[in-house]
Design a protein around this nucleic acid. Structure first.
Lengths: 109, 109
DNA sequence: CTAACATACAACCAAATGGTTGTACAAACG
DNA sequence: CGTTTGTACAACCATTTGGTTGTATGTTAG
């Protein structure tokens, strides 16, 4: 995952409205306007939030008649989760190395 | 995880420098200045990045003499990863429900 | 004690963010 | 056909962000 991609993904997730939109479309894909009516803000504001999610590939839009249907992209979510897992692996590697060094000194004959 | 907490966490992760700092301190805790010298930007800028990570509980600082040692907080990372996993579960639940409905109609006597 | 070091923090600035309203246009309904 | 609906997009605005420099403070080394 590139830096720019991670930037876009985490930035998209760093907003409660966008996380809520993500949850909604994970459960059921729906049009931008059916999403918009759930929130206090204007339609244009919701449209912008969807655009941010789309730029991060967290959702995609497909036209159906005059509606634009928003679908979740599970793969992008998994890539983000995986990046966090990799961070944990860094820590684990350090822990292993330290344990190894301790074991080594303990083994000194 | 509260909305505000998720906001802070993902916002903190939505910057390449901050992710890099996170990786470094996961591998080895170190002082703010030893981190700062790795980047082109000013010391104060790095200090601010660390503050953002700290506000998100992704790192903590502990004073050691005149230095401030930055430690990674693995738990906060795990909480973020878990939130993403919950999103995947939402999707999975929908998939299961749909599969159930299909099975049900197929079972009609 | 003094000098150098590590940090903290305020003030400032340009750019990005998150919202608004208004306009335009295509698709669907009656 | 005209009207409503769903979307797109530009212009604008307040606030936040990400950087800078400068100053102050505490801590260690000599």
């Amino acid at each position: 995952m590139s830096d720019a991609e991670a930037d876009r993904t985490f930035h998209a997730l760093a907003d409660a409205t966008r996380r809520d939109i993500t949850r909604r479309v994970l459960q059921r894909e729906q049009s931008v306007s059916s999403l918009a009516c759930r929130y206090e803000m204007s339609f244009a504001a919701v449209q912008k939030h969807v655009a941010v999610l789309e730029a991060a590939s967290l959702v995609t839009k497909k036209r159906r008649g005059r509606e634009q249907i928003v679908h979740a992209n599970l793969d992008a979510l998994r890539r983000a989760a995986r990046l966090l897992d990799e961070y944990e692996q860094l820590w684990r590697h350090r822990a292993d190395t330290m344990a190894g060094i301790l074991a080594e000194t303990g083994e000194e004959s």
